[in-house]
Design a protein around this nucleic acid. Structure first.
Lengths: 168, 168
DNA sequence: TTGTATGCAAATAATTTGCACCAAA
DNA sequence: TTTGGTGCAAATTATTTGCATACAA
């Protein structure tokens, strides 16, 4: 029952994402459907960041039982965001989703080489953000910070490659 | 000659954007053309953030002298980014451009109500960023921070509206 | 039953690309 | 001349939407 056991630690929540979504649907008079159940399960089965396409690739193909049409996938992802289950942001043009429910606020380091996203959490940044916003008279709702660069692995790989070149 | 006189102050540069772009083109064996000259001028005539569409709306229509096709506009905007003249980032799905050349590094507050972008500069953030990156073994290239919220003007407008409602 | 939800296909929107022709250097 | 640049239209990509039908409550 622990779909909220991640590297950054988890926020204590009393409901599973499934239960939380069910509640959301009921509160709005929306319906529990096979597609929605399947998608919540799929989305919360792994913690990695993903986009609509990656999600659909992990779903049964057209014609197979459990198939969900692209239209429904897109519509449902929006509901997940509305329901507070997922967060989304743009990266290299595509829309990337990540778990929000049961997961602490955080930001990202993005390796422009291997496209890996690394999460980090910092209260200092939140304080900074609130201070800047206050100075400018803004009422903050949230923020998005992405630090671009090259991760340690890729740096190492590059150094190795360069050393080889130097030998030639 | 001062297309770099903005609210955040300007970085001292020895060349105008026009000259800088010319140099960039020459260094790569690319050509000086009427369209490119026209677009550099247009883009650096105002400091506001813009997207491809907004830029094209400020250009002569098809059939008029000085018309530049969408294909060329998109191709040229990319070159401006490569040349270091412009920066770009995603906002609400669209690609937004802003001056980079001759303008200091900064970040943004975004009013989700009126869609206004407010710039702010902070060395503290850059230090923070470098510290976090170092901890994670990243070699930083740059970062992007957007603080979302409601600006003072919109907050005031909302309060006024609410007061009116309360009176009814 | 009654109104939502879904699949399908067409419609969008924002770019990108292929290609024949134009024009800097 | 030679090779890069441009306009045009078609192709892409990622979604979104209209609509007839299926299904949850």
């Amino acid at each position: 029952m622990s779909s909220v056991q991640q590297s950054l630690g988890n926020v204590s929540v009393s409901m599973t994402p499934q239960e939380r979504f069910e509640e959301y649907l009921q509160s709005r008079g929306l319906r529990q459907t096979g597609q929605r159940r399947l998608l919540v399960d799929q989305v919360f089965s792994r913690h990695e960041h993903f986009d609509a396409d990656m999600l659909m690739e992990n779903l049964p193909r057209k014609g197979q039982p459990g198939y969900v049409s692209p239209a429904t996938v897109y519509r449902t992802l929006k509901e997940f965001v509305d329901a507070g289950l997922l967060n989304s942001f743009q990266l290299d043009g595509r829309t990337v989703f990540e778990h929000d429910y049961g997961y602490p606020q955080h930001d990202h380091l993005y390796c422009t080489q291997c496209r890996k996203l690394v999460e980090f959490q910092s209260d200092e940044l939140v304080e900074f953000r609130d201070r800047v916003a206050a100075e400018q008279g803004f009422r903050v709702s949230d923020h998005r910070l992405i630090i671009n660069g090259v991760c340690a692995d890729c740096s190492r790989a590059r150094r190795r490659k360069k050393r080889k070149q130097d030998l030639v």
